[in-house]
């Protein structure tokens, strides 16, 4: 059984996102450990990229901080390995295709598996371009995670479900990543309609930032909630005080996790 499957079977999940190496590798490791210690159920880890077209300004800046601090694909995998040694928590990656393509698709997934990765979502690979990526993922026993958006038609969803594994990443907003004030009705509809078509767990992300959002999503049927920009803003706010940064991230994860437990 896979870590992702087992986890979703047991509970509704709070899934914090952070960029590997933001603001630097040592601090990044401590941040991720704090997330785990505060009750994260799964990790969504981003590989920093120079041109992240699916991301809003918050995550763009995080990518830039990580790259400026010397992030490379090798170092990102080393960091994941250290996290894997620390915990058995499911780890899913969010990567842009060129980082995978340049390393060699097969090699990237092999390295991911060896580092302890359970799932990989390629942000800019729709099902049309996914064949080689999905094949490599399956070969190395990694779940190929796919995005489902408000704009995904029933025909597209059917095609996505033929390729997808692990869980579906529901994009809650029409747009890029970044904090939003409210959860749209369209998001609730997206959860309900997608649920009818698949038995895969549904994790909702993009724009989610408060315990209130989390409760709303979980009671609408989400199996997991992914929060990124809100966490990265904590990092951004506390660049001068790493201890405070790590404490605040831990506290935030704890509060959100509580909201999941109460909402389910």
């Amino acid at each position: 059984m896979s870590r992702i499957k087992d986890m979703f079977k047991a509970k509704k999940a709070f899934i914090p996102f952070t960029v590997l190496g933001d603001p630097d590798f040592e601090t990044s490791k401590d941040i991720i450990k704090a997330m785990i210690d505060s009750g994260a159920d799964m990790l969504e880890l981003g590989f920093p990229y120079s041109d992240p077209i699916a991301d809003g300004p918050t995550i763009q800046l995080a990518d830039k901080r990580a790259l400026d601090a010397g992030a490379t694909t090798n170092r990102a995998f080393r960091l994941i390995k250290e996290i894997r040694n620390y915990s058995g928590i499911p780890i899913s990656l969010l990567v842009y295709s060129n980082l995978i393509y340049k390393r060699g698709i097969e090699k990237f997934y092999r390295d991911a598996k060896e580092s302890g990765v359970d799932g990989v979502l390629v942000a800019d690979i729709p099902f049309e371009e996914s064949e080689e990526y999905t094949a490599a993922a399956k070969k190395h026993n990694i779940s190929p995670v796919f995005l489902v958006a408000q704009t995904t038609t029933p025909r597209r969803l059917k095609e996505i479900l033929k390729c997808a594994g692990g869980y579906l990443y529901l994009v809650s907003v029409l747009g890029v990543t970044g904090k939003r004030k409210t959860i749209e009705d369209a998001t609730i509809n997206l959860i309900k309609t997608t649920k009818k078509e698949t038995s895969l767990p549904l994790a909702v992300g993009f724009g989610v930032s408060s315990p209130k959002h989390v409760k709303k999503l979980v009671s609408a049927g989400a199996d997991g909630v992914i929060v990124g920009s809100a966490i990265i803003q904590i990092i951004e706010r506390n660049l001068g005080d790493k201890k405070k940064m790590i404490d605040e991230v831990g506290e935030f994860v704890w509060v959100m996790k509580e909201a999941i437990v109460k909402g389910s």
């Binding site: 077209i53 729709p126 958006a149 996505i160 994009v171």
Partner: peptide
Amino acid sequence: STKFGPFGGTFVPETLMIA
């Protein structure tokens, strides 16, 4: 066809595909 030999394609996030 979205391709020119091995080049081209639609490497974009799902949200954009419908557009």
